[in-house]
C-alpha cells in the first residue's frame, strides 16, 4: 500500500459527519472533479449541477469508501465520472451539448498521463501497457474513458458496427489487464 493519502483521510473524517473535513475535501478535490464533469458533459451549467450532486453523494456515501481498495482521489473521480456519464447517456438521442464553451475546451488541454506523471510507477506502467496496444485501440480506450464516449459514438466515429467496436475494445481491455498483472 502506498503511504499517505490525505484525501482518503478527509473522506474518512467526512464519514464521521465532520463538516470541516468535508470543506477541506471540497477545497482539495472540487477543481479536479469540475474538470472531469466539464470534459465529459461539455456544458458548464450542467457540469456545475453534476459537481453539486457528486459532493452530495460524497457526503452521504463517505462511509462506503474503503481505503484498502484504492486511493481517495480515485474513488472521488469514479463518482464524478459515473454521474457525468449517466447524465450524458440520459440525454435525449441526438442532443449534443450545445455550448462547447471556453472552459470545456480548456478541460481538454491537459497533458496526457505519460507527460504529467512519469515519476509515478503506476502511471508509467499503464503507459507502457498502452504502448503494447495498436495505436488506434489505445486511443479509443483513452478517448472513451476521458470523454465518456459511448459504443454508439465510437461506432459512428470509426464507421464500424457497434458490436465490432465493442469486441475490439473488450480485447483491448483484456490485453491491458494481462499486461498490468504480468
Amino acid at each position: 500500500m502506498e503511504a499517505g493519502d490525505p484525501i482518503a483521510d478527509l473522506i474518512a473524517a467526512t464519514a464521521r459527519s465532520d463538516r470541516a473535513a468535508f470543506r477541506a475535501l471540497y477545497s482539495a478535490a472540487s477543481a479536479k472533479l469540475f474538470g472531469v464533469a466539464l470534459r465529459i458533459l461539455r456544458d458548464r451549467s450542467e457540469a456545475e449541477d453534476a459537481v453539486q450532486e457528486v459532493f452530495t453523494r460524497v457526503w452521504l456515501n463517505a462511509r462506503r469508501f474503503d481505503a484498502g481498495r484504492g486511493r481517495g482521489m480515485t474513488w472521488l473521480i469514479a463518482i464524478a465520472r459515473n454521474h457525468a456519464i449517466d447524465r450524458l447517456r440520459a440525454r435525449p438521442a441526438g442532443i449534443e451539448a450545445a455550448g462547447e464553451d471556453e472552459t470545456a475546451r480548456l478541460a481538454d488541454a491537459a497533458p496526457g498521463p505519460e507527460a504529467q506523471s512519469v515519476a509515478r510507477g503506476e502511471a508509467r506502467r499503464i503507459a507502457d501497457c498502452f504502448d503494447l496496444l495498436e495505436p488506434a485501440r489505445a486511443e479509443a480506450v483513452r478517448g472513451a474513458y476521458l470523454n465518456g464516449l459511448s459504443y454508439l459514438d465510437l461506432s459512428r466515429r470509426h464507421g464500424v458496427p457497434v458490436n465490432t467496436i465493442r469486441s475490439w475494445l473488450r480485447r483491448g481491455l483484456q490485453k491491458l489487464k494481462e499486461c498490468l498483472e504480468a
Binding site: 472540487s30 477543481a31 469540475f34 472531469v36 470534459r39 473521480i77 478541460a107 491537459a110 498521463p113 502511471a123
Partner: peptide, 27 residues
C-alpha cells in the same frame, strides 16, 4: 474497484478547473 484502479492513471489527463466561487455554499 479493480478496474477503477487499473485505469486510474488516465485520470491525470483531466485538467483542474476551478468551479464557481459560490458552489460550496450551494452544496
Amino acid at each position: 474497484a479493480d478496474w477503477q484502479n487499473r485505469l486510474a492513471p488516465l485520470n491525470d489527463a483531466y485538467a483542474e478547473v476551478p468551479p464557481p466561487a459560490d458552489m460550496l455554499d450551494r452544496i
